[in-house]
Design a protein around this nucleic acid. Sequence first.
DNA 1: GCGATGAGTGTGAACGCTAACATTCCGGTC
DNA 2: GACCGGAATGTTAGCGTTCACACTCATCGC
Lengths: 342, 342
Amino acid sequence: MTEQEARRAAVRRSPSMAQVAELAGVSHQTVSRVLNDASLVKEETRLRVVAAIEELGYRRNFAARLLATNRSRRIGMVTAHLALYGPSMIALGVQEAGQDQGYDVSIIGLPEFSFEGLQRAVDRLSDQAVEAIVVAVPHKDAVEMTQSLQLSIPVVMVQGVTERQRLSAGIDQEAGAKLAVGHLLDLGHRRVAHVSGPADWIEARHREAGWRAAHEERGLLPGPELAGDWSSQSGHRAGLRIAQDPDVTAVFAGNDFMALGVLHALHAQGRRVPDDVSVVGFDDVPQAEFYWPALTTVAQDFSELGRRALSVALAAVRGDDDPEVALIEPTLLVRGSTAPRH
Amino acid sequence: MTEQEARRAAVRRSPSMAQVAELAGVSHQTVSRVLNDASLVKEETRLRVVAAIEELGYRRNFAARLLATNRSRRIGMVTAHLALYGPSMIALGVQEAGQDQGYDVSIIGLPEFSFEGLQRAVDRLSDQAVEAIVVAVPHKDAVEMTQSLQLSIPVVMVQGVTERQRLSAGIDQEAGAKLAVGHLLDLGHRRVAHVSGPADWIEARHREAGWRAAHEERGLLPGPELAGDWSSQSGHRAGLRIAQDPDVTAVFAGNDFMALGVLHALHAQGRRVPDDVSVVGFDDVPQAEFYWPALTTVAQDFSELGRRALSVALAAVRGDDDPEVALIEPTLLVRGSTAPRH
DNA sequence: GCGATGAGTGTGAACGCTAACATTCCGGTC
DNA sequence: GACCGGAATGTTAGCGTTCACACTCATCGC
């Protein structure tokens, strides 16, 4: 037993290309060729090599390959708020699309948004030699912060995109909000209250902008705006205040969870939905249909968004130089929580 | 320009240890020592090296390190149903705990449960040289399937654990269910209906077992059982049937989403909650408090579960040979959806 | 019958790190 | 002053790939 063999036995390394080569009676390079571009090797030898691979249960060593090629076939993703519906669906979409394309996806979740956190996350991903990074951090400063990092690999921004960045994918939040609020105004409501998301989220701002724009397009003044933070809790607080104000006959909540809080508060205060007050949400979480009453809301295809983001990233990796932007249009789902003003 | 330099320029490799060494006027090994175990090097040289690292923006190459050491400092995780609340929180917990301990976590989500899928996922993770794998796939066959894979690295099972496996972490589902159903029975309900999760989920079975046991302990017969699939949709279907049956005064839903569906159906049929029917859920999703009425449910600390799972995994990696099992106790949260039978 | 061609295969050197061993330096001892 | 020993540092050889190039044969054209 040579020293090398002793060592291999101790650490239980898996079989190497050299071992496969020896078993097949060829050089390690031929094995490599079989694995990478089989066209260059004679069918007969190819079969011998394949058999040897099979017999040894050989799997090619990722680290060695990466070291030699400097190509990891891995995409990094930075996200925040994985507990929320949207972000986690986006992550899922990126994941799945990556699998399909033969890329692994490393996801790092930021516990809270900060420049240092973003930097650390990006550092970690760089250590893993990712070929591109998808940033799904919807904070208003995320875009410039990310740009200030000066990364040498492609970075795709997801969410909160309307200013056309070079690489990005997003859902047209403002259009979605206009859809929702327009629906309420078309039902005859004159003033629609808005429970907004946190001011430092890009999405929250776009939805608010859409709400405002829908009023303006009709020459109306937007109703009261109440600050929320995406949680049902905050929606509930807003709902309690809305219930006090008999002038408010319609509410546009920044997301479904807040809408749920609003509904709860309205019920608790004895205001009927949709008879007294109409409520619209945003996101179409799977449960929205079963809120009481069923929630009218704006559906976004998050998982498609994730897939798009990944393909934009891969296009950039391949060097397709079109600055690609994928913008997805949301759709309105009308359910029982909205009715004409009477 | 040597050939090597030309190549480096082309691929834009980041600075290597050798370059740092040259700048600091030491050997690459000294740099390595500074990075790994600074105690062996004189303070003065250490500072020179650190300065050189700083100046070049050097980051140690993960692939090379892995190739040399065969230790990746990476944990793999296989999960399914990332769209559900529990699984995604568990993943989050594993992630975070990993970060804290200096481990990266690679998560692979199974689109649907199958042996091949599990195998593929585990293969991918093995390729990445993970040091341990956390399997959070709550399918009834997941445990034995995983064991049949005969992996050479530690595998920790999460969820659905009561038979004491060697390495696992879980929440005591049966205890939680008994808590919930016991609460209803203590309120004077004689028969509690159960909307169960899919039969091939371990969790679903344990919750069902708890529901049954709670009745038996009191010498009662369990009420009707309706099959669900975790979705509000299925809860809604079950709720419609429950509404038909005036004998049913209490419902234990296998999770909060189904409970929501039940609530919706009961409202729609004009049955009052909790006056006519009491409803209990399971999971305590953040929105449960704002369902109408606020949902009595069983809280599980998923994220803690994730953390525990990771630390069990790391203990195994380190070779601490106590077969460790972390079992977490759920707690009951009583809210407005339950009331004494009248 | 001999060089050119190209298909198929082999050889050796990276890639950037760590592990094992070798060497140097320096103060203290006999 | 030769010798020892430990602290500090250097040297060399892997780890398992890929890449660039070299080699070996048939086959072909003339």
